[in-house]
């Protein structure tokens, strides 16, 4: 039988850097979307806390940390990133494995906000978009989820089929910001 090799969405495309901004791929991990059943939101949050130590995030928020995160990704929907979902969650919501479906990258460095300001129609400056805040929005024409994971670090998720476009768009903005900083 042929040997199969797992290939990450941004394989061969990342990491890249321009000026003091870096874009790298976050290593592939388990990703599970969770949609609470009707009337089960509070119970799901309790189950998440008991099993994984993270509450269900409110809209536009994320809970957890590197390696184990819950990110709000839409109406009545969150993404559990990292841990294997506990069986206790299944009583309160619909769980779907999405591990291979998303390209997940990390944009970091002093100018990261300036890069995103060229691409995203939402104010992501630290004064209003703090650590633990997340948005579902558009990066150029692409639907993305953006979460602030550090003082100058963002996690960006796009559909896997868009990985090359995502890298191209962000790289173009990174070069533009770097060129402006250099002049």
């Amino acid at each position: 039988m042929a040997e199969m090799n797992a290939k990450s969405p941004c394989d061969g495309l990342l990491p890249i850097a321009a000026g003091d901004v870096h874009l790298s791929e976050i290593p592939m991990t388990l990703m599970t979307s969770i949609s609470p059943f009707k009337g089960q939101t509070a119970a799901l949050s309790e189950a998440l806390k008991a099993a994984h130590g993270m509450a269900l995030p409110a809209p536009n928020r994320a809970t957890g940390r590197d390696g184990a995160r819950v990110v709000w990704i839409g109406r009545e929907q969150v993404m559990l990133i990292g841990p294997e979902p506990a069986a206790s969650l299944e009583a309160h919501g619909a769980l779907t494995d999405q591990s291979d479906a998303w390209a997940v990258v990390r944009l970091y460095g002093e100018g990261a906000e300036d890069v995103l300001a060229r691409l995203v129609p939402v104010d992501l400056r630290a004064a209003v978009f703090k650590r633990g805040h997340t948005v579902r929005t558009m990066l150029q024409h692409m639907s993305v989820s953006i979460t602030r994971v550090g003082d100058s670090a963002f996690q960006i998720m796009a559909f896997r089929s868009m990985a090359k476009t995502l890298v191209h768009e962000v790289e173009t903005a990174m070069k533009g910001v770097a060129a402006r900083d250099a002049s």
Binding site: G74, Q77, V135, R136, T137, M138, S143
Partner: peptide, 15 residues
Amino acid sequence: GVTRDLWYHEGGCGA
């Protein structure tokens, strides 16, 4: 004047 329309938050939460 005033209209009442359906919109879809396609690039956001999907509502």
